[in-house]
């Protein structure tokens, strides 16, 4: 497998502030690679340097053999970019947007129109092609935003948080699209602050925080760092107040940590089946009704917590 992207010690300063502090990684052809990190970690800044929008303060990267510093045009021809914020002409229709952006990628004539039809099909907007983008829902706009990045069949696609702020169905559709594209042979660099997305999509994940890549590897390799823990998830009723229960759970032997988010209590333990009985007993004592219980293997969220002491979500 050849590396389609190689990043060496990439640095970006905004004035005195260093947003990216010497990041290095590579992506192999055919992979989906995720950059996972909270808001402000430096994901967009990194993608901006890789897509030749910003010049790196230091370091370099090669995309499909072209240096972002020395041959930005070569890089631009090889990549597709789906920016974090929508970048479309709202007064033009979906089709007109795709045609215009296709022209910017040097497509024209019959190849352009047939490619635009293909992409419309792929993003599921064929029947809305002649509607102005400003009449679209957030999810539909996101899909057009992705479509623009696919027009010239790039070898490498950069997707910067493409699911932020949309409904669950649209998110599902987008994640499926990413997987489809990858099956058809496209390499994808995907950034997100949703652990589940990184877990579902990626072959390998880089965890980025405060401009530094703090861990990199397959999901298995990463979770191994946390040690052999499991997490019990208790789903409780809406009207319950589980905070007292959570403190009681923290006092149990073999419980490393306990937390509550909405109606979910999570209990981190070296062995779920050993603590299950005592956890249920404690809940019964307090009259809290448990709807269901899940057992989870260590996840990327736990890895992030382990490495930074903070939760991934803000």
């Amino acid at each position: 497998m050849t590396n389609i992207l190689e990043v060496q010690n990439l640095v970006k300063n905004y004035g005195d502030f260093q947003a990216v502090k010497g990041v290095s990684f590579h992506i192999q052809e055919g992979e989906i690679f995720s950059l996972l990190g909270p808001n402000g970690a430096g994901k967009t800044t990194t993608i901006s340097m890789l897509s030749t929008l910003y010049e790196p303060t230091a370091g370099d990267a090669t995309v499909a053999g072209h240096s972002v510093k020395k041959n930005p045009m070569g890089v631009r021809n090889a990549i597709g970019v789906v920016p974090q914020d929508l970048a479309l002409y709202e007064d033009l229709t979906a089709k007109e947007n795709l045609i215009f952006w296709g022209q910017m990628y040097n497509l024209s004539g019959k190849p352009l129109t047939s490619r635009v039809d293909e992409v419309l099909e792929q993003i599921g907007l064929t029947d809305k092609a002649k509607n102005k983008v400003k009449t679209f829902s957030g999810g539909m706009k996101r899909r057009v935003n992705i479509g623009v990045g696919l027009l010239h069949k790039p070898k490498l696609l950069f997707m910067d948080e493409p699911t932020v702020g949309i409904d669950p169905q649209s998110r599902r559709a987008i994640l499926d699209t990413v997987k489809d594209l990858n099956k058809q042979g496209m390499t994808v660099l995907y950034t997100t602050h949703y652990m589940e997305e990184a877990e579902e999509l990626s072959n390998r994940v880089g965890i980025i925080d405060h401009g530094e890549l703090i861990a990199i590897g397959t999901q298995k390799e990463l979770t191994k760092q946390v040690g052999e823990t499991e997490t019990l998830i208790l789903h409780v009723g809406e009207n319950e107040d589980p905070s007292a229960l959570v403190s009681a759970l923290k006092g149990l032997p073999n419980v490393i940590d306990a937390n509550v988010v909405n109606n979910e209590i999570s209990v981190v333990t070296p062995s779920a089946k050993d603590v299950l009985a005592s956890v249920v007993t404690k809940a019964n004592e307090r009259g809290i009704k448990i709807h269901s219980i899940d057992i989870r293997e260590p996840n990327l969220e736990a890895v992030f917590l382990h490495l930074t002491g903070r939760a991934l979500r803000d």
């Binding site: 030749t52 929008l53 021809n77 970019v81 990628y105």
Partner: peptide, 11 residues
């Protein structure tokens, strides 16, 4: 609106 940025990453 971000379209200038997007134009700048096209060839």
């Amino acid at each position: 609106g971000g379209t200038l940025t997007r134009l700048l990453v096209t060839p």
